[in-house]
Simulated scan of single mutants.
Amino acid sequence: MEKAVIRRLTTLCIVCGLVCLVLLGVAGFRDTNREWKYYQEDYRQKLLGKVGRDKNPAMYQRIVQMKPELKQVVVGEWQTVDRCVTCHISIEDPLFAQAAQPLKTHPHPELLKQHPVEKFGCTICHGGQGLATTYYGSSHETIHNWPVTLVSKGLMQSRCGYCHKDFEAIKADKLIQGRALFQELHCAGCHQINGQGGAVGPDLSGFADKDPSNFPMENLKGSRSKQNWVIEHFSDPQRVSPGSSMRAYAMSERQVEALASYVLSLNQREFTRKYTPKLSAGFVPPRVDTVLPEPGLNSSQAEPDVKKELRL
């Protein structure tokens, strides 16, 4: 009996040992086949072709000796770690201006001069999950329960508004238009921003900081992200939030993006001076509860409409 038990235990130990060896082998294989390693090797090979051994022998040799490595930027101000440059390794390399992603140079190098990657990282402006090193994991597509998916091109200016409050100074046309729409549509009749406006609807002061779990996603037609929720909610509030008292306004796609960009820029974070742009002399933030007449109406025509709107 004892011999039979010993044989079984021995067999079990051998099987467990073999399983551990297989798992170690799989782990080693996966580690050598990381997605980002292929991107870095592709960058190295293409860079060798662009530099050439005869043009610059010293640089060519340094490129030959390049080894794959994780690259990251720690931004303590935002309590975030960005590893985006692990894949976007040539983000500041002008030789790759015409390359395909993820090796393509940033399309606006002038912005990188004012927002250097080593200081700002990438997710401050682009959203996404900075710690990830895969296409899916970094939230290029919507990740369930990840608060900030990669910001779409149409809403990119919403991130500018996190730090820049003088929209005119940076020529943020969508933020300017979105703030004007907030006034023209009399949104402050129901919503407050920094103590300005009504209290019928939710306070929007820190809207950018709200977690996506606060938003009902079950009625969305598109991706289940906070960005898309705002877009669809402005287009059809009754469908997205049944029972909502908010009206549906006839807005173009650009107007919806502009208003969404403005609302998604509203945060109450306070940053240190190095992340806070200097405001122009005499800058006074426009009041959001100032009622603007709708285009095409004079003041005598606009007043009754304003009162009507505020009663709804």
Score class of each variant (00 low, 15 high):
309 E>V: 15
127 G>A: 11
263 V>Q: 12
48 L>C: 06
243 G>Y: 15
120 F>S: 00
271 F>A: 11
218 E>D: 07
57 P>L: 09
264 L>V: 01
239 R>Y: 02
307 K>E: 05
241 S>I: 13
22 V>G: 01
126 H>W: 05
155 L>K: 02
180 A>E: 12
89 I>P: 00
139 S>G: 11
298 N>I: 12
187 C>P: 01
182 F>G: 00
59 M>H: 03
177 Q>A: 14
235 S>M: 08
84 C>Y: 15
25 G>L: 11
263 V>L: 14
74 V>P: 03
198 G>Q: 09
181 L>P: 06
72 Q>A: 02
128 G>N: 11
107 P>I: 14
297 L>G: 00
184 E>I: 15
141 E>R: 14
63 I>H: 04
247 R>W: 12
57 P>N: 14
70 L>F: 14
104 K>W: 04
152 S>P: 00
284 V>R: 00
64 V>A: 02
207 F>Y: 05
248 A>I: 09
268 Q>Y: 10
72 Q>W: 03
143 I>S: 09
43 Y>I: 07
115 H>L: 07
85 V>E: 13
18 L>K: 06
146 W>V: 00
267 N>K: 01
227 Q>S: 11
199 A>N: 08
106 H>R: 02
276 T>W: 11
82 D>F: 12
177 Q>P: 03
41 E>T: 10
10 T>I: 09
290 T>D: 09
215 F>H: 06
68 P>Y: 03
63 I>Y: 13
228 N>E: 15
277 P>G: 08
129 Q>T: 15
207 F>I: 08
162 Y>E: 10
38 Y>E: 04
223 S>L: 05
88 H>I: 07
39 Y>T: 03
132 A>H: 13
227 Q>A: 10
6 I>D: 07
107 P>K: 07
271 F>V: 09
310 L>Y: 11
